[in-house]
Structure formats: structure tokens, C-alpha cells
């Protein structure tokens, strides 16, 4: 994964296009996208627990577009504070809320208002009072320093132009000894600049 934003990439345009793409996903999850979505994909390809997913509202799981399974990396503990960076419609966020129980809290941060609405409504529909959905960007997390036990993220860092800054933010909000459980893209070779600088290849 390239961790520096190429100098000739229009960062503002990239941010707008990523936001627009996920806004489109929020509105029409069955539309045409370059990535898989949904409950069956999460279960069959990424190894999610189908029974756990079936507890979530379909409005949430149909908008799932992760690329890995951060909650499978290590179990959550009751009472943990978990932060989901780029929570989208809330699949991992709500699973985390179930995992930490009523004494814990699951905070979701996402740049897209429509996705946040789905996450918030999903938590309400499940009666989860330990979910906090916030607007924000991975490169400037609206979360207090050293306040989080576990940071999860699924397919988000690769879309952030300022990747070192986003990782620095994850380090900032974690308590000492806290865990980062991040699913993201790995690339097996260094990409040519013509590919890295092509926004269409970032957003599909």
C-alpha cells in the first residue's frame, strides 16, 4: 500500500468522489459498484458469523462493503470502548456494540451523512444504547486522545489520501496497550505513478 499521497493527486476531488460513491451506496446498495456488498458476501468471502449478521437490520447489512474482517482478529471484551473508523452503515459498528455489551461503547465515525443515518437508525432499531455515531474524517478523528481500547476499520484507510495522518490519529486515540484491528487493501507490488494518480482507480 502506498502511504503517501501523490503530489499530483487532487485530494479535494478524491475526497468528494469517495463521499459521493458511498452516498450512492447508501441510497442504492443494489446499484453497480466495483466491490461486493451485503450479508452473504460478508459471510461467504470474509468469514463473518452469519447468525450474528442476521441480528442486524437488513438496511445496515445490505450496505456493508468491507474488504476484510477486523472483528475476527481478536475478541472484544465486555466494557471496552471501540472506535470504528469509517463505520459506513454500521455492520461492524453494531457487531462491536453487541460484543462490548451495555457497559461498553461503540463509536462510529464516518464522513458520509447518509451512511451515518443508516448506522444510527440501525442501532435504534436494535435497541442499542451504547452506539455513538459521529461525523468526521479518518485524518482528523473527533475522538479524545487515549480514550479507546480497540480501533477497528474495514476498507477505509486505502481511500484516505493522508494515510500516515490517519494512522497517527488511530495511534492518538488508542490507550496504551490498545489494539488496532484494521482490514485494508494490500498491494503486492509498487504501482506506477500513472495508476496511483488516477482517481477513477481509487474510487472505481
Amino acid at each position: 500500500m502506498s502511504l503517501s499521497c501523490p503530489v499530483d493527486l487532487d485530494v479535494s476531488r478524491l475526497r468528494r468522489e469517495v463521499n459521493a460513491m458511498y452516498g450512492r451506496l447508501a441510497e442504492t446498495p443494489k446499484g453497480a459498484f466495483h466491490f461486493h456488498r451485503g450479508l452473504q458476501y460478508a459471510e461467504r468471502v470474509l468469514g463473518y458469523d452469519g447468525r450474528a449478521l442476521s441480528r442486524l437490520p437488513v438496511e445496515v447489512t445490505t450496505r456493508f462493503a468491507g474488504i476484510g474482517n477486523p472483528l475476527a482478529i481478536a475478541p472484544l471484551s465486555a466494557g471496552d470502548t471501540v472506535l470504528d473508523v469509517g463505520c459506513g452503515a454500521g455492520t461492524d459498528l453494531l457487531l462491536a456494540a453487541l460484543g462490548v455489551g451495555a457497559l461498553g461503547i461503540a463509536i462510529g465515525v464516518d464522513m458520509n451523512q447518509r451512511m451515518r443515518d443508516h448506522a444510527f437508525e440501525g442501532a435504534a432499531r436494535m435497541g442499542l444504547a451504547n452506539v455513538d455515531v459521529r461525523g468526521g474524517d479518518a485524518a482528523a478523528l473527533p475522538v479524545a486522545t487515549r480514550s479507546v481500547d480497540v480501533v477497528i476499520s474495514n476498507g477505509v484507510i486505502n481511500l484516505v489520501p493522508e494515510k500516515e495522518r490517519a494512522i497517527g490519529e488511530i495511534a492518538r486515540v488508542l490507550k496504551p496497550g490498545g489494539r488496532a484491528q484494521i482490514a485494508d487493501i494490500a498491494i503486492g507490488q509498487r504501482l506506477p505513478s500513472s495508476v496511483v494518480g488516477n482517481i477513477d482507480l481509487w474510487t472505481g
Binding site: 477486523p70 476498507g155 496504551p176 488496532a180 482490514a183 485494508d184 487493501i185 494490500a186 507490488q189 495508476v195
Partner: peptide, 14 residues
């Protein structure tokens, strides 16, 4: 073509 996969990363904050 470019060897792109989804990967789970685990890390501990020191």
C-alpha cells in the same frame, strides 16, 4: 494484475 487483496492487520499500541 497488481496483486491486490483485502488483509487483516493487527497491532498493539505501545
Amino acid at each position: 494484475q497488481f496483486g491486490v487483496y483485502g488483509v487483516n492487520f493487527s497491532a498493539l499500541r505501545s
